[in-house]
């Protein structure tokens, strides 16, 4: 891909599990580790939303997690992008009838990129991050 001119910094990602089954979560870690190795591009997981450019959400958002997701989103500095990894965060998927779901994620906070799959392969997650990156670069260029 051709990087835009405004490309000047690495992307830092904060990951929240909002009731996921771990399937997506381990694929996210797999994307970071040597086989797929996105850390070579400077993409890394950070421990606080205040340091993050991208919010990576897995899971269908259970009732207990709603406020936490909102708080984390509000704590992120602008410009920011949100990626939902997995079917259940995008649509509810097999849990859509459950009494304890408030999600999908886009009913709670605005979502920029959906990565479908149950779980999606690491390649798909990387593709999603690249798409979010493009959005962030565009926002940055407009400022």
């Amino acid at each position: 891909m051709v990087l835009p001119k405004s490309f000047k910094r690495s992307l830092w990602v904060f990951h929240i599990n909002t009731g996921s089954c771990n399937g997506c979560d381990i694929e996210i870690i797999a994307a970071l580790t040597p086989r797929y190795d996105v850390e070579r591009f400077g993409i890394k997981l950070v421990g606080s939303p205040r340091h993050a450019d991208v919010l990576l959400i897995t899971g269908p958002v259970t009732r207990q997690m709603v406020e936490k997701v909102k708080t984390a989103y509000q704590q992120m500095p602008e410009p920011k992008a949100v990626i939902v990894v997995g079917n259940c965060g995008s649509t509810g998927h097999t849990f859509h009838t459950s009494y304890n779901l408030v999600g999908p994620v886009d009913t709670i906070i605005p979502v920029d990129v959906y990565v479908p799959g149950c779980p999606p392969r690491p390649e798909a997650i990387i593709d999603g991050v690249v798409k979010a990156w493009l959005k962030l670069e565009t926002l940055e260029a407009k400022r």
Binding site: G19, G59, T62, Q64, T94, F95, S98, Y99, N100
Partner: peptide, 21 residues
């Protein structure tokens, strides 16, 4: 925090549909 009510969903479906859940 991860409670998704899976057992309840299971009682709304037949055994073969429960397998993916």
């Amino acid at each position: 925090h991860v409670h998704r009510g899976i057992e309840w969903i299971g009682t709304q479906k037949n055994p073969l549909q429960i397998l993916p859940i």
